[in-house]
Structure formats: C-alpha cells, structure tokens
Computed example of a mutant assay.
Amino acid sequence: MGRLEGKNCIVTGAAGGIGLETTVLFAREGANVLMSDISGPSLARALAKVKELVPRAEKVETKITDVSNESNVKAMVEHLDSWGGVDVIFNNAGIMHGDDADAIDTPEQIWDLTQAINVKGVWFGSKHAVISMRKHGKKKGSIINTASVVALVGSATPQLAYTASKGAVLAMTRELAMRHAREGFRFNALCPAPLNTPLLQDWLGDDQAKRHRREVHFPTGRFGEAIEQAQAVLFLASDESSFVNGTDFVVDGGMTRCYVTPEGAPTEPPKNLAR
C-alpha cells in the first residue's frame, strides 16, 4: 500500500517544478491525480513525463485551469466528482512576474495579476475543495497551499506583489485551518526557499548580483530542488501528518535561520536526491 493509496488528489501548477515533482510522488504512492495548469501543451508534456516515470499509475488526468477564474476552479474540482470527491488539493499555482519590483516601481496591473493568481487562486481552490469534501461525506482531507519564506522574512530583491501575496496565503491558511479543524480538514502552508526551478531562473536571468543576493543567505550554499519540496508536500498530504494543522511548513535549507553563508559551504545539490 502506498502512502496515498486510493486518495483523490489535485495538483495545480502541475506542469513543472514543485507541481510536477509532487504529481510524480503522489502517483507513485497510489493516488489518483488530476494535474492542473493554465498551459495545455505544458500539461501534455508533464503528463507524458509522469507516465514515463510512473508507468503503473492508477489514474492521472489533466485539466486546463486558470486558477484566478472561479468557474474554472469549480470545474476542476468537480472533475473529481466521478472519482468520489477530493481528498487532497495542493494549491501550488503561482507567478512571480519579471516586472514585480518595489512600492514605487511595481505596475498596478502586475500587482493585480499577482494577487489574482497567487491569492484568489488559493482561496478558490480551498473553497471548492471544502465544498467537495462535504458533498462526498469526507471525514478528513488535506489542503496544502504554497506560500514562501518571503512571507516570513523580507526579500533580498524587491518583489513586493509576490511577497504580499504569499503573506496573504499564510494568513488565509491559518484561518482556514482553525475554521475547518473539527471537520477533519487540515490546512497547511508550504514555505519554500528560492528553488532551482525555471520560474526563479527565468526571473534571475543573467543578473549575477541579484543571484548572489539570494545565494549568500543559504547555509547550504545552494538553492533548493523541487523534489525536496515535493517530499514535504507528500508528508502533509498523507495520514502521517494527521496532527499537523495550520503550520507554516518551512523547507528552506536553514535560510530563515541564517545571516550569511558560512565559508566553504557546498554550492552543488547532492547527487542522491530521490525522486
């Protein structure tokens, strides 16, 4: 028996990064998984990758979803009605726009876009997951929302809209955890450090000064890897975390406890990270 055997799970932002790695782990642990993302071609490529890595996966399907649109999210969640309703949702979809800056230079439309995806998307996902869990008589469920370490500490590089959105996710997750605890529905916020994902690497680009301002705060001397976050999500989704609720689940390599990187710290990720 896998750790998620028979559970019906949704992963948003599943076409890459943490979402894709989480989908692979969920499928490997026996879950039925609905992969959601806004890009159809990216979803198709991600699904092919999952099938390659987990050829015996019971059920893995895709659904194109704009998480900032409530009717899209409602349709995504209701896709699982024929499966028996939602057991786990990982509200992971989010953006960090290249034009996001400080209070002076962040365009209003970038602020609004970031809040719509990063905050409203989590709200809609949480709302309709709870509706589904109640509808199908679930006695327990796990909702995991992707926040960030910048919800806990200031960002070394200005990204005001993103930082504000992740603070909102953290606060919202805490309140939802208290509201639904007696129903057996757990809410936890994953707080990753900057990761070696296309989202961050595209944003950093070739700006070595911007990159260094981030790397210097890692005791490990490196960015995290998406698989390291996915393993934390798997724990939060499983019954092993049955008494974990309302947490800021920080997976940051010690970043939020470190002032500067110790001299001689490694700079490459370990080679034995299990997928």
Rank of each mutant, 00 (worst) to 15 (best):
K135F: 01
C258L: 08
G141K: 03
L152M: 12
R3K: 12
V33I: 01
H136A: 11
W111I: 08
Q201A: 01
G98R: 13
L199Q: 13
P198D: 14
F223A: 12
K140D: 13
C191T: 04
A116P: 11
W83C: 08
T106S: 08
M96R: 15
N72M: 02
K271N: 06
T12M: 09
G253K: 00
A44H: 12
N32D: 09
V150L: 08
A129I: 00
M35H: 02
S82L: 12
G19S: 10
K63R: 15
E240V: 02
N145L: 01
D37V: 04
F90E: 02
E225G: 00
D202F: 02
Y162C: 06
S155I: 05
K51M: 06
D66C: 08
E268P: 00
E108S: 12
A156K: 13
A171K: 03
T157Q: 15
P198W: 11
L234A: 03
S71L: 05
A226T: 00
A171I: 02
P219W: 00
T106Y: 11
A164G: 03
I18E: 00
G137F: 04
P192V: 01
A103K: 02
A75S: 15
T23G: 04
L176F: 13
N72E: 15
T23H: 01
F90P: 02
I117W: 04
S42M: 12
A230W: 00
E52G: 00
M255P: 03
E175H: 11
C9L: 09
V73P: 12
R174V: 05
S126M: 01
K139A: 10
P194E: 11
V169I: 05
S39L: 09
H212N: 12
S142L: 00
Q115E: 01
A27M: 04
Q201Y: 03
G205D: 06
P158E: 07
L234T: 11
D66H: 13
N196W: 09
M96D: 13
Y162N: 11
R257D: 05
Q159F: 12
W83D: 09
